[in-house]
Structures are given as structure tokens and as C-alpha cells.
Amino acid sequence: MPLPFLTADRAFDTEAADDVALPHDDRDRWRRPYRPGPWRVGAAALCLLLASYVLSAAVIIALTGTAGGAAAVFGVALLIVAGAVRLLRMGVWVSARGLRHVGFFITRTVRWERVVDVRTVQQPVRWLGLPRTVQGQALLLARADRAGDAVPPLLTSHNADFLSRAEAFDRAADAVEAWAAEYRRA
């Protein structure tokens, strides 16, 4: 079964990616210009493993206990699976319409007309989203309607997608900057 939210543009992984700045077929489709990192995929896999145990418990409860208890445990398993899928969908998505920053609870979409600048800066960033900060790189978005406001970074070199993968962060940041450069002037 294909999982489109796990795939990225294949042309960024090949040697021919240098010839094509923006490899895309359907510009209106939302796409993530990078693959989810091993930390994110590993956390989602552990959640799905936990969900399988909870589903087994729901079956055992259904066979030996009450239907209400089994339904409650099955509901918990569904919440864990939904959380794992949402964890995999987190990140930056781009299309011809704009830029979408998908978080675990909140999704923010910015039309390209409102984007002033997308740039990579060296600054303290949060390590795996925890309160601890380390020196790293961040991809920042400057919006026309929020001049001067502090906006959380779109990507960081120490988040779950790019921890210990500096080249992958550079490719992803370059891809998002290329989308912004193409559609801001259009």
C-alpha cells in the first residue's frame, strides 16, 4: 500500500537533481520536498507497535470481558494510530498555492503572496523539539502581515527529520527556498 505522506520528490535524491531546480509534475498538489527523518519514523513505528499491543488487549477484553471495555480500549488504540500518522505528516509542505507548516496539533498555511522571505540562519534551535537548545541552523519564514513578529522556524537542523543529517537539511532548505523564489515573483 503506497503511503504518499512518506515519500518525497524523488528527483532530489538523484544526481540529476542539479539540472532541475524544482522537480514536480502537479504544482497544485501539496508535497513535502524531503523525506521524514529516522527519528520521526522510529517514533511512529514505536507508537504503532504500542497500538498493536493495545489492539490485542482489546480483542482479549472483547472475548473475555465486556463490550464496553473492549470498545474503550479499541478507541485508545485508534487514537495511538491517529497520533502516529499525524507524527509522520508533520513538516513543511509546498504547492503552487503556498507553504504549509504541519505541526502535531496545528497546521498553518501561508499563501505565497504573503511570503516576504524564506532564508536559512544560524541560531540556537531546540533539540528534537525539547526545551534544550543547541547551536544549529533554522529555516525561517518572513511574512508580510507579521513584520517583526517572532515566527517559529519551519525546519531546524536538530529536529526529528534532520538530526545528524546536515546534508538532508541543506537539500530540504534549498528546496523550500527554491519554491519560495519561484512563486513569490509569479
Rank of each mutant, 00 (worst) to 15 (best):
D9F: 00
A11Q: 09
A11L: 05
A11K: 01
D13W: 10
T14H: 06
T14C: 07
T14Q: 08
T14G: 06
T14A: 15
T14F: 03
E15T: 14
A16M: 07
A17V: 07
D18M: 10
D18L: 13
D18W: 12
D18C: 04
D19P: 00
V20E: 04
L22Q: 05
P23G: 11
H24I: 12
D25C: 04
D25Q: 12
D25G: 09
D28N: 15
R29P: 08
R29L: 10
W30V: 03
W30C: 08
W30D: 01
R32Y: 01
P33N: 03
Y34T: 04
Y34L: 07
Y34I: 09
Y34S: 08
P36F: 13
P36G: 04
P36Q: 07
P38D: 14
V41K: 12
V41H: 00
V41A: 13
A43G: 15
A43V: 14
A43P: 01
A44Q: 10
A44G: 08
L46R: 10
L46I: 11
L46P: 05
C47G: 15
L48S: 02
L49S: 10
L50W: 02
L50S: 14
L50Q: 08
L50T: 15
A51H: 02
Y53R: 13
Y53T: 15
Y53S: 15
Y53Q: 14
L55H: 04
S56V: 06
S56H: 14
S56E: 13
A57K: 00
A58E: 06
V59L: 15
A62K: 03
A62D: 12
A62G: 08
T64I: 13
T64H: 07
G65P: 02
T66P: 09
A67H: 11
G68Y: 06
A70Q: 01
A70R: 01
A70F: 03
A70E: 08
A70I: 06
A72T: 14
F74R: 01
F74K: 03
G75L: 15
V76L: 15
L78A: 13
I80A: 04
A82D: 12
A84E: 10
V85E: 05
R86E: 09
L88P: 02
L88Y: 03
R89A: 06
M90G: 02
M90A: 10
M90C: 12
G91H: 02
W93A: 01
V94E: 05
V94D: 04
S95P: 05
G98P: 06
H101K: 05
V102Q: 06
V102N: 00
I106C: 03
R108T: 15
R108F: 09
V110P: 01
V110G: 01
V110H: 11
E113F: 05
R114F: 05
R114N: 14
R114P: 00
D117V: 13
D117E: 15
V118E: 07
R119W: 08
P124T: 05
P124N: 07
P124E: 08
P124Y: 04
R126P: 05
R126Q: 01
W127F: 10
W127D: 04
L130N: 07
P131M: 00
V134A: 03
V134K: 06
V134P: 00
G136N: 00
G136Y: 01
Q137R: 09
L139N: 00
L139T: 00
L139E: 00
L139D: 00
A142H: 11
R143Q: 13
A144H: 02
A144Q: 11
D145K: 02
D145A: 04
R146A: 14
A147W: 06
A147T: 13
A147Y: 02
A147S: 14
G148Q: 03
G148I: 01
